[in-house]
Design a protein around this nucleic acid. Structure first.
Lengths: 188, 188
DNA sequence: CTAAAATAATAGTATTACTATCATTATTCA
DNA sequence: TGAATAATGATAGTAATACTATTATTTTAG
């Protein structure tokens, strides 16, 4: 229903629970979004670290990381009690709202974004491992993560603003972008 | 004060007007945001078209366009009754919220995003004019526009996630990115 | 089986996001 | 200038939101 019209009262009805009970777990819906986002990025980080763990070649390592971080979340592999497909949809549509608030600096100080920041930094390090002379590894890393969500959103709602579709995936676009930017030829 | 705590009542007090009067101009604050965003992107489009008009070399033309679209809005050149510096701050912090809503497809149909879409398409065409074989001109164009706002936001609130600062500008990052991606050497 | 913990039910408050009505003030143009 | 028209202001009202507080009931744990 979108973050704006979502309320704890509605959630209570949906899960057969009570508004006041939910308030004992989350101060407000913004904090719930922060929680879901951290869960999501923690899960992405886990997948990325796991998938790139054994790879020694930095180029292949980065390539695999981009793949994990930008691919669509299709299959529900019953990883946990959380439905990752639905969560991914929520992140694509709502994640920006978790930090585009006037309290962002305070909440950042309080640690609400550490997992996301750690993930961006890991990616930026992988970029630096491929090309230490590239001076924008952090900006490139944050662009890939944010941009990936954005391309999926455009694919759904503004197809005229993206080349991505079911065959040309955001993964393809970003792999190509990284490959051109760091002067690799992993993708031919 | 941020979009969330902004209300027409507060605006009325601030501009010595009346809540009910403001409602005669804008259905709600979301529509006001859509209006401000369209004004902003229309202004950017104007600046871009004006600055690139006489340039025949596609590489220089694209370079200039990126410059206009990604540079910080510092000087208030009294272009109109609108303070562009403040508007730019609003766009950086709030623009995403104008389309990350469940009504986005309907509002897109009703034309609320035409100016922004036209701008992205113009940029994407400039990219195609430089390298017609590059297959992601639209995704690259949308990434630059969205990414530019994002890098400014990071610079302010998450400096650890960007290489941009007062000397290394988002313009530098994006010019370099475009230059590498399309294999130019405009920037050395 | 009892104590503690968690949850539910209910009530209540301040604020938001409007709509409606009518009075007042500006503006236009004949 | 002055009458019609348009814009604005003041006020009231409503349903919903985003909570807090209190007390009753149920669940769970040892």
């Amino acid at each position: 229903m979108g973050f704006e019209s979502f309320t704890f009262k509605k959630l209570g009805v949906r899960i057969n629970s009570n508004e006041s009970s939910i308030y004992r777990y989350f101060e407000n819906k913004h904090k719930l979004l922060l929680y879901l986002a951290s869960w999501y990025w923690g899960w992405m980080e886990y997948k990325m670290v796991f998938a790139t763990n054994g790879i020694s070649d930095p180029i292949q390592k980065l390539d695999r990381a981009i793949e994990i971080l930008t691919q669509s979340v299709e299959e529900d592999n019953a990883f946990s009690h959380i439905n990752e497909v639905i969560l991914n949809r929520i992140i694509v549509n709502e994640y920006s709202k978790s930090y585009l608030v006037k309290e962002v600096s305070q909440e950042n100080k309080e640690g609400y974004f550490i997992i996301y920041k750690r993930l961006v930094c890991r990616l930026s390090e992988m970029i630096a491992d491929v090309d230490a002379s590239y001076p924008y590894s952090k900006s490139l890393a944050s662009s890939v993560l944010e941009g990936s969500l954005h391309q999926y959103f455009l694919q759904e709602h503004f197809p005229v603003l993206t080349n991505c579709n079911t065959t040309v995936t955001p993964t393809k676009f970003f792999k190509d972008l990284i490959s051109r930017t760091l002067n690799l030829d992993v993708n031919g």
